[in-house]
Design a binder for these strands. Structure first.
Lengths: 227, 227
DNA sequence: CTTCAAACGGATAAATTCGCTTCGTTTGAA
DNA sequence: TTCAAACGAAGCGAATTTATCCGTTTGAAG
């Protein structure tokens, strides 16, 4: 073919760097992460970001889709385990580990694409299967529902300590912080095993997690989303 | 006597409203909460805020001191319990409940006053006592340290779901969200009881929590290039 | 009722930050 | 050597943010 890709390899590398940078910056700065920060962290110019994505929102949507892929893959791996408990705990640990609290801050700030909705549904199904298997095997406490576990994952995925250390550039402490969170996760997982007193209140309804991604209903100061 | 207080009562009420509003806005908007938002939520003018605090930072420092008071009081109450386990769990639950993730986002963004440092030390001592009693009674898993529990509190105190719902004004779901978190906390507390396999890794050092409040004098993340 | 300082609210100034565009430069396969 | 594709970064207007300024309201003292 004729001229096709003078610097195609570099473009590919930059795209990858942008996505990784966006994820980290999003975890650190929250929903108000700026494109300038993301581009700087990726080591590329701002224009390189806008050449790939038409807007900041589009970048975040793509990032969400990729994260959902990770969730789906983690669930599929978990379902392949022979031991239902191992499968569930590996899924939970994996989600907490790689999520980095990326999606949480985004909830409600970006529109949900059809692609995202489909992947979310698939992820949810797989997750319910995982929980059902663990319940059937009697290793997971019967009163803990899939919703409980989803909330647990979200709660532990976003670590204030890790985020702040990252923000301050204390790379010398991040290992210790991650180790500390592993212990917190281990404690929570032990609490999920069978043989504990009944959980308080009633199980949370799926609406709690579903509706949070709905477009912000009465949000006052939002620029009209184009597209 | 000379004129003393034409509208003193109103001033007092406004001060109280400001503190409460600041706490809520801080939990919702994070460290970048604006004074305008806080004043609006308190239902007062911006000037009323600046009449009491010379700057935004001074307000936040005062707020921190008050929160530390709550921690101290919760620990003292916990120590009064006859049952060490009840004392510890009530302390943990109380801290998670009222913290609202207020202090977390502030860490590193404001200077630590001497008052804050003293209260932090006192709170830490009481908390260690609580844990020591629970350990001595054999109700708390021996491998869980005070640091582990501090991190657990911080991790569960900041709820992404609750914050987002609050941000979107979905007051119809906040009750359900709080109930859901109560269940998450209950799971974690069950995981803290004795009779579980050894926790992974080594216990986190106190430096992890102490250093995060250290001055962040070199505004590192301001320009994300080379530091 | 009049007085008047304390307290009020909100417009506003000055500086910053944001998303995004434009533009001159660099790269590397043909 | 050529030249389109890809690059980095300065720049633009709009939107925020902190903090101050100023005219108005309040309510106890005289």
């Amino acid at each position: 073919m004729a001229r096709r890709a003078p610097r195609h390899a570099e473009a590919e590398r930059n795209d990858q760097a942008l996505l990784e940078a966006a994820k980290k910056v999003l975890a650190v700065d929250g929903a108000h992460a700026s494109v300038a920060t993301i581009a700087a962290r990726a080591g590329v110019g701002i224009a390189s970001l806008y050449r790939r994505y038409r807007s900041k929102d589009e970048l975040f949507q793509h990032l969400c889709a990729l994260s959902l892929d990770q969730w789906i893959e983690a669930a599929e791996r978990g379902l392949q385990h022979d031991d239902p408990w191992e499968g569930l705990t590996h899924y939970i640990s994996a989600c907490i580990e790689f999520s980095g609290g990326s999606l949480g801050p985004l909830a409600g700030t970006i529109a949900i694409t059809d692609e995202m909705a489909a992947k979310f549904t698939r992820s949810d199904e797989l997750m319910r299967d995982l929980v059902a298997h663990a319940h059937a095997a009697g290793v997971l406490r019967p009163d803990a529902t899939a919703m409980d576990i989803s909330l647990l994952i979200e709660q532990l995925g976003k670590s204030p300590l890790i985020e702040q250390l990252d923000r301050q550039g204390r790379t010398d402490l991040t290992d210790a912080a991650h180790n500390a969170r592993k212990r917190t996760v281990a404690i929570a997982l032990d609490g999920l095993r069978s043989g504990h007193p009944q959980l308080p209140g009633t199980a949370p309804t799926p609406a709690l997690l579903a509706e949070r991604w709905e477009p912000a209903p009465t949000n006052s100061t939002r620029s009209p989303g184009r597209s």
